[in-house]
Amino acid sequence: MDITQQFRRNVRTFYAWIGSVVLLGLSPILALRLIENGTTFWRVAGVIVGAGGALPWMWVLYRIVRQGDEFVRRMHLIAIAITAAATLVVLMTIDWLQRAWFIESPNMMLIWPACLVIWLVALIATKRHFERPE
């Protein structure tokens, strides 16, 4: 692949990323509105829109990782492993805090964005680890 093709592919990926992030941000708002309608049909539609809004973003992320070289893949692999472990610890802690009556039942609407933040922090930390000077 020559440099022009690569540049075009990167530009397309960038716009796809922006578009998917916008969808990721808008889908919960739209899903909540659909669910508020109350009927089974609109509630099902709300679940599909709410959960499905993340799929384009996941697809673009998958494409980015696939297009990347072995270094990019390693970075993402480590970041995902850290995210999985950290998310498990967070969920277990919340569960035990709830079981011990320290907190009320948590709002899932706060937990899954927190998982995204954990992933982002893990990715930045991994990148910094690999790129820090000797």
Binding site: G68, D69, E70, V72
Partner: peptide, 18 residues
């Protein structure tokens, strides 16, 4: 066929190439 970041990481010894 790799990125500049990959070369940086290999040179500093932080990343072992395949």
């Amino acid at each position: 066929g790799v990125s500049r970041q990959a070369i940086i990481a290999i040179e500093t010894g932080r990343f072992d190439p395949s």
